[in-house]
Design a protein around this nucleic acid. Structure first.
Lengths: 141, 141
DNA sequence: CATTTAATTAGGAATTATTCCTAATAAGGA
DNA sequence: TCCTTATTAGGAATAATTCCTAATTAAATG
C-alpha cells in the first residue's frame, strides 16, 4: 500500500469521500506490521479517535479490500488485515497469534502452473503457514 | 487418508471408541471429493444415519484433524474438510464454492525456505487460490 | 453373556465474528 | 452557505462454532 496522500487522492478521484474515520484506519494500517483484526483496529484507533464504530471499520475494510489496498487472511475464524498486498507467505504463530510476512519469488510461477493445470481463472492467492514464532517455539519443543 | 479399516484399527489402538457416527463421517470423507463443510457432512450422513448430531460431527472432525487424518481450509468464514492430507493447493471457485486440489512439488521446498528465513517452527501449511472454475468462469469474463 | 465404567453422543443454549438496518451526520460540489 | 447523498453510529440480526449436561453405549472384564 502506497503513501497516505496518494491513496486519499486516488480514492477521492473515484468519488469516495475522505472521512476522518477512513483516514484513521488507513493511517494505522500503513504503519503497523501487526496484521490486526477488525476488532483490534477498532480498539486501537478509538484511543485517538473515540468516535469510530466497529461497523465503520468493517465497511472501510471492505472498501480497501475491493480496491486491493489491503489483503485479508483468515486465522482461527477471524479475519486479519495487511496493507502488504503483493503475493507473499503469511507465517502465523499458533501460540501468540503473531503474523510475519515472508517474500517468496516462486509464488507467481506456482499460481500460473496451477491455473494452467486446473483451467481455473485465478483471481487471488493466499499462502499461509502455521507454527511457532521464535519467541514461542521454546515452549513447545 | 488411508482405507477405512486401517483407520479404524489405528484409532481403536489409541483408545478411541469406534462409534457408528464416527464410521459414517470417516466413510463419507474418504469417498467424497467435495471438501464439505461440517453442516454439509451432517446433512449428507443424516440421510443414511438419521441420529447423528451436528455437534458430534464437529467433535469428530476435531479428532480427525488432531490425528492429521483430515485437513481443514477456511472459505468465507466456513471451515471445509478434506481427507487429502498431503500438502497441496486448494483452488476455490468464488462463484459456486467448488474446491479442487492441485498437487505441486515445490511446496515442501518453499516451506523449508520460509522456515529458515523466519526461524519459525512450521507445523502445517495451507495454499489457497481463489477464482472461477471452468463452469463458472464464462459468466465472469 | 452380564456387568461396569468412562468415553461419547444428542440437543439445545451460549458465544462470537460479521453483516444488516436506519436515522442522523457530514463531505464536498455548487 | 446550502444541498445532496455517501457515510456513520449503534444496535439488532445472523450464522458458524463451541460449550454444557444428562443419557447412551463401546468395549474391557470376569
Amino acid at each position: 500500500m502506497q503513501q497516505l496522500e496518494e491513496l486519499v487522492t486516488s480514492l477521492r478521484k473515484e468519488g469516495f469521500r475522505i472521512t476522518p474515520q477512513r483516514i484513521a484506519i488507513v493511517e494505522y494500517l500503513l504503519k503497523t506490521e501487526e496484521h490486526p483484526s477488525a476488532d483490534h483496529i477498532h480498539k486501537t484507533i478509538q484511543k485517538k479517535y473515540p468516535m469510530v464504530s466497529l461497523s465503520t471499520v468493517y465497511k472501510t475494510l471492505d472498501l480497501l479490500k475491493e480496491k486491493k489496498l489491503v489483503s485479508e487472511i483468515e486465522v482461527e475464524g477471524e479475519a486479519r488485515f495487511d496493507a502488504h498486498t503483493d503475493e507473499h507467505i503469511n507465517l502465523v504463530c499458533m501460540n501468540c497469534g503473531k503474523i510475519e510476512d515472508v517474500d517468496e519469488n516462486s509464488l507467481k510461477e506456482i499460481q500460473n502452473r496451477a491455473a494452467k493445470k486446473s483451467k481455473y481463472l485465478i483471481v487471488k492467492s493466499s499462502f499461509e503457514m502455521f507454527g511457532y514464532c521464535t519467541n514461542c517455539k521454546s515452549k513447545f519443543n
